Simulated assay, not measured.
Amino acid sequence: MTIGENEIVSEREFDFPRELAFQAWTTPELLARWWGPKGFTNTFHECEIKPGGTWRLIMHGPDGTDYPNHSVFVEIVPLERVVLDHLSGHEFRITAVFEDLGGRTRVTFRQLFKDIAEFEKVKAFCSEANEQNLDRFGELLAELAV
């Protein structure tokens, strides 16, 4: 993990093909199963995974707190990249890049904040949350590969 001026970059290699990793990011039913830090669940209200598509969900924290989220997908490049802008609460852009490693996949997860002051407030929490998110992503890939 790298923390820049207003960006957190997490990178992880998975022992699963890029097609499976991209599918887990771009299929709403699968995305709902792994999105968010450990202990969170999701209720998706709208999830149009296409450029300009809206993603509205509520993340349910393990303590029962609900976190409404609204994002818009900016770019979808099959098997290569998913870009979305998170518009509710803290504004940031997420870019997920999928790199083929000969049957394995490297996922680079970039979270670029619009406002540096907001970034400073949440960077410690978001850094850990992003790592937990990738942990959950890997667990889902393992389930799907069976």
Rank of each mutant, 00 (worst) to 15 (best):
G39D: 08
E91M: 11
Y67M: 07
L30S: 04
E46H: 06
V146G: 15
H70Y: 09
S10T: 11
P78Y: 13
T54M: 06
E13L: 11
F125A: 15
H86E: 01
F119C: 00
F73G: 00
F137C: 12
I3H: 01
T54I: 03
R56N: 11
F98I: 09
D63Q: 02
V146N: 15
W34Q: 10
F113A: 00
H60W: 04
V122P: 00
G39T: 14
E75T: 12
E118T: 10
I3N: 01
T2I: 06
E91I: 12
I116D: 09
A117P: 03
I76G: 04
T43K: 15
N42G: 02
N6R: 14
A145I: 02
E13D: 14
D15F: 12
G89H: 09
S88Y: 06
T108Q: 09
L57T: 00
H45F: 13
E131W: 13
T108G: 03
N133A: 08
E75I: 04
I76V: 15
A32M: 12
P51Y: 04
E80F: 05
Y67G: 00
D66N: 12
V74I: 14
E99W: 04
W25Y: 15
T105M: 04
K121W: 02
F119W: 02
D100L: 11
F16K: 09
V72C: 02
D100K: 07
P51L: 07
I8E: 01
Q23Y: 09
N133L: 13
P62L: 03
L140T: 02
L31T: 08
P78H: 10
D15S: 15
R110E: 09
D63H: 04
L141H: 08
I58Q: 06
G64E: 07
G138M: 15
A24S: 13
L141Y: 08
F137A: 08
K123N: 03
I58C: 04
R136T: 07
L101A: 12
H70S: 05
N6I: 01
M59S: 06
K121V: 10
P37R: 11
L30Q: 14
N133E: 05
L20H: 01
R12D: 02
G4I: 03
V74Q: 14
F113I: 01
H60S: 03
L20G: 00
T95C: 12
L112K: 07
T108S: 08
L101R: 14
F22T: 00
L79V: 10
H90E: 09
R33T: 06
I116F: 04
T2Q: 10
T41P: 14
T26R: 11
F109N: 01
A129P: 10
R81D: 03
